[in-house]
Design a binder for these strands. Structure first.
Length: 266
DNA sequence: GCGACAG
DNA sequence: ATCTTGTCGC
């Protein structure tokens, strides 16, 4: 029988309705966003002249997904010593996700697992609790200016930096224009460009962190940090294209997921 | 209509 | 995100 819909029937399960609710939640949280340096520590670039708190523990978060079961994932939190770039803490969680991936709403899928890993550290007063978090995903470089890094930062009340490995096309930004600008800057031995949208807003920067890779990464602020500071910290943590906290989170979450699956198949 | 759309 | 080994080069 043909459905005659004069009135919305399944409004609670309509995806457009869900997206609207999610968007409102993002706008709500956005009011708490702090887009400038707001932390108790400093960078240890100058001489260690006092007993001031120095940035030492930098966290990285990521999720890896199973190919055979797309709802199964491994969320991970790693913490690195900024000076040695060695992992000093790691924890992971194998989860079954019910929320789908929708561009622009990544946080609603990934944030809960990651927040739980952070909360576990905080409530046990773990000495390695990160002073800053690097997130595999964007910060304000996002359709509503509130990506996963902002979402996590505001909810965990932590300074966060968003690291995108692909460009989210926003405000007229395109990969070809980014490439063009990066190429032009090569002559001046610059390796990054500011991402200024058609509106004039600055969304972040595109950086070629390694000479070897032509593919840039996209840095945007998450919470309680300025873009300048974010760039400096990313530069301090890059041994390869992707900053080490993100890279380690990526490698290790994939590894734990693989081990988990082989263990289950026996 | 067409292309774009973080992970 | 995921499918995927070796291989070319610094």
């Amino acid at each position: 029988m043909k459905k005659i819909s004069h009135a919305p029937v399944e409004s609670s399960s309509s995806s457009s309705t869900q997206h609207k609710i999610w968007g409102e939640e993002q706008d709500e949280l956005k009011q708490k966003l702090i887009a400038e340096d707001d932390f108790p520590w400093r960078l240890a670039t100058t001489a260690t002249s006092d007993q001031e708190e120095v940035l030492k523990y930098v966290g990285g978060v990521d999720l890896s997904y199973s190919k055979e079961d797309p709802s199964m994932a491994c969320g991970i939190l790693v913490v690195l010593d900024l000076h040695t770039l060695q992992v000093v803490y790691e924890d992971f969680s194998i989860v079954t996700l019910s929320v789908p991936y929708v561009p622009g709403f990544l946080a609603f899928r990934e944030a809960p697992v990651l927040l739980e890993l952070l909360e576990k550290m905080r409530t046990t007063a773990n000495p390695f609790y990160p002073q800053l978090l690097m997130v595999d995903g964007n910060g304000i470089l996002h359709p509503r200016g509130f990506g996963l890094a902002c979402h996590l930062g505001t909810l965990a009340n932590l300074p966060t930096i968003g690291i995108g490995k692909n460009l989210h096309h926003v405000d007229g930004l395109t990969l070809s224009s980014v490439r063009q600008l990066l190429k032009a800057k090569e002559d001046y031995s610059e390796n990054f460009i500011t991402l200024t949208g058609s509106s004039g807003r600055i969304w972040g920067v595109a950086v070629r962190t390694t000479g070897g890779s032509l593919k840039p990464i996209f840095i945007s602020i998450g919470h309680r940090i300025s873009l300048d500071t974010a760039i400096r910290i990313v530069n301090m943590t890059c041994k390869y294209r992707v900053p080490e906290p993100i890279r380690q989170a990526d490698i290790r979450s994939r590894e734990y997921l693989r081990k988990h699956q082989t263990r289950m198949s026996k």
